[in-house]
């Protein structure tokens, strides 16, 4: 089976794994806010050290984290290049036409790249340390207030967890169909972008058909197991523990720290 970084739970027992998924989701949001509030390298350094500590406590191997970043490597490099070349500034090292490499540009692009990497790493850490079911349970629980406006929170959570469950299956299926089409002479590797996208249509159509067939069967299997969308109980109940309290204090300290750093040390450029 192909390894997919997104939605791949890394099963070990750790402090971070045991945190309440609701807390982890809220912490992630808080962390992302902190990343955006941080206006200088000191703020980012604080964020990064919190994240590194979280990774250390999660016992997720470093290679897994790197893999998650590798997935967005193109975006990272692209962002860096654009900002180095077009940002402009006072201390110019090199310029040609509208292109201009300056000290400010380099600093700013480093700042953006760190932000981006932190964002990707913290979100993937969430999926590495939280089972899809815990994640959707957490989202369901956090969205409970929406039940008041008759929003089908439970159905949404179930849809999400099934979607996560189907990702590896559909990846396998895509690979299988691709091989089948290759055997019939399809060419996915050459030609321009347009041609390659077009070559993918004979893969997408059977994939879509099979997904519908699977959905139909899954529906029957759920019916057979007495699913009716009505009242049901939950085997896994979410519970806050002292770990979540520790985490919450850490989170609050993080945001306060980053805000203070922004106020007292100002912007990067």
């Amino acid at each position: 089976m192909k390894e997919v970084a997104f939605g791949q739970y890394y099963p070990v027992d750790s402090f971070v794994h045991r945190l309440d998924p609701r807390f982890k989701i809220v912490f992630l949001i808080g962390f992302i806010v902190a990343i955006f509030v941080a206006s200088n390298f000191y703020g980012l350094a604080v964020c990064a050290s919190v994240l590194i500590a979280a990774i250390a406590f999660s016992r997720v191997p470093f290679g897994k984290i790197v893999r998650a970043v590798r997935g967005v490597l193109f975006l990272v490099i692209f962002t860096a290049l654009i900002n180095i070349l077009f940002h402009g500034g006072d201390t110019v090292y090199w310029s040609y036409g509208i292109l201009c490499v300056s000290k400010e540009g380099i600093l700013f692009s480093a700042y953006l790249v760190i932000r981006l990497v932190l964002l990707v790493v913290c979100s993937s850490l969430l999926t590495y340390t939280t089972t899809p079911v815990a994640l959707t349970d957490g989202i369901e629980s956090l969205l409970t207030p929406l039940k008041w406006i008759r929003f089908p929170v439970h159905a949404l959570a179930l849809v999400m967890s099934i979607a996560l469950r189907m990702i590896p299956i559909l990846m396998d299926e895509t690979e299988r169909i691709k091989n089948a089409q290759k055997a019939r002479g399809a060419d996915f590797e050459s030609g321009n972008l347009f041609k390659r996208v077009k070559a993918f249509i004979p893969v997408l159509v059977p994939l879509l058909l099979s997904a519908f067939r699977r959905a139909d069967e899954l529906g029957d299997a759920m019916d057979a197991r007495c699913y009716n969308g009505g009242h049901r109980t939950k085997y896994k109940k979410l519970r806050f523990s002292w770990r979540d309290l520790v985490g919450a204090l850490l989170g609050a300290a993080l945001i306060t720290g980053v805000v203070l750093l922004r106020v007292y040390l100002g912007d990067i450029v």
């Binding site: 079911v133 967890s161 099934i162 469950r165 699977r214 299997a221 007495c226 699913y227 049901r232 896994k236």
Partner: peptide, 25 residues
């Protein structure tokens, strides 16, 4: 049913086994 991939709703074994029992509350 026939295809095991099309009848499991959860990614973890125990969560999937629990599904039916949860449905009957």
């Amino acid at each position: 049913f026939q295809n095991p991939d099309n009848q499991t709703v959860a990614s973890i074994v125990e969560d999937d086994v629990a599904f039916g029992a949860e449905n009957v509350a």
